[in-house]
């Protein structure tokens, strides 16, 4: 692999993820609408929304500090960075070694802290409420997420996503019960971290029940657009991390232009399936009381730990 093609792949993938992320959101919304027997909105609706928001004038509270105005850009930057690390289309990207899965969790944590700080910046009671709840979900989800990743790391002997994907994709076919556990745990964390049902309802705007929406209540126009876009990229990144760990087939190697179409096709298929599954989960489940979230996420943590124990027992 020459460095030039490597970097070309890197840039291509980053831009691809950023551009494709709202499409995924549109697809999930469409599926959900179908499942709820509504007529579905356009697949491109998230793009229209973003364009609309970008063209408006931003309205900011008098008391806002520079931190408030910086945060949307930091959030977007963090998610873009994550999109660069995760092997979405290709493994062995030149930038991938700069951050392993633990650093990836760190990126998401960084974004969360900034979002929570910005929410508290104006000093309204809802901002504080949202920040508190977001951090609650965060501290519950992070250990579960790390244990899930640890299970994969133990199986492949590495915390580099590239290496994990290569080990898992090129092994002979075998059933890893530990991975199955980790996959379920990961799915639960994914729901919680991306503010989906049953932890949060992405469609709600009722102040008392919302988590994520309370956090960004004060944002408008381009700032809101950046945050919404970052949310879409985050969902995309989480799903692709899931693919990297549990369904790594069909991914291209960096610099190998020939397998790229196949990789794109495989990714599109996997995303379509995962998006539909996500919509199905959201249609079937109801939103939980906030204080059931600890139970939900401690179950995820438990599953991840069990996966790891079983790995040590069965494969050890």
């Amino acid at each position: 692999m020459t460095t030039a093609t490597g970097i070309a792949f890197q840039l291509l993938q980053s831009v691809f993820v950023v551009l494709a992320a709202p499409l995924l959101l549109g697809w999930v919304n469409q599926c959900r609408a179908w499942l709820q027997n509504r007529s579905a909105p356009s697949l491109l609706l998230p793009y229209y929304t973003l364009a609309k928001l970008f063209h408006k004038d931003a309205v900011i509270a008098h008391d806002a500090s520079p931190l408030f105005r910086l945060t949307p850009y930091v959030l977007f930057g963090c998610m873009w960075l994550a999109a660069g690390i995760v092997p979405v289309l290709a493994t062995d990207l030149p930038f991938a070694p700069a951050a392993d899965i633990i650093a990836l969790v760190g990126v998401f944590a960084l974004a969360r802290v900034f979002a929570a700080l910005a929410a508290m910046d104006i000093g309204t009671s809802f901002g504080g409420l949202g920040a508190r709840r977001e951090m609650l979900i965060g501290f519950l989800a992070e250990p579960a997420m790390l244990m899930t990743l640890f299970t994969a790391a133990f199986i492949s002997g590495s915390t580099q996503l590239t290496t994990i994907v290569e080990t898992l994709a090129h092994r002979e076919f075998a059933i890893y019960p530990s991975l199955a556990f980790a996959a379920v745990a990961f799915g639960m964390v994914l729901l919680a971290e991306n503010a989906r049902i049953p932890i949060d309802n992405p469609a709600t705007h009722l102040e008392l029940t919302m988590l994520h929406e309370a956090l960004i209540l004060e944002y408008s126009a381009r700032h809101l657009a950046l945050i919404e876009w970052a949310v879409a990229i985050k969902l995309f990144a989480y799903l692709t991390i899931g693919f990297a760990l549990f369904a790594p087939w069909g991914i291209a190697a960096a610099g190998d232009w020939g397998t790229l179409p196949l990789a794109v096709a495989a990714l599109a298929l996997k995303l379509a399936l995962a998006g539909a599954a996500l919509a199905l989960v959201e249609a079937v489940l109801a939103k939980m009381r906030l204080f059931l979230a600890p139970e939900f996420l401690s179950t995820a943590f438990l599953l991840a730990v069990l996966g790891m124990l079983i790995h040590f027992l069965v494969q050890g």
């Binding site: 002979e172 075998a174 059933i175 019960p177 199955a180 599953l303 069990l306 079983i310 069965v314």
Partner: peptide, 21 residues
């Protein structure tokens, strides 16, 4: 390489443990 049948049993065992929890 563990034989496929034993992998299946392992999977079911994991399922059993999951159910116990």
């Amino acid at each position: 390489a563990t034989p496929f049948s034993s992998q299946l049993v392992n999977l079911l065992a994991a399922f059993l443990l999951l159910l116990a929890f």
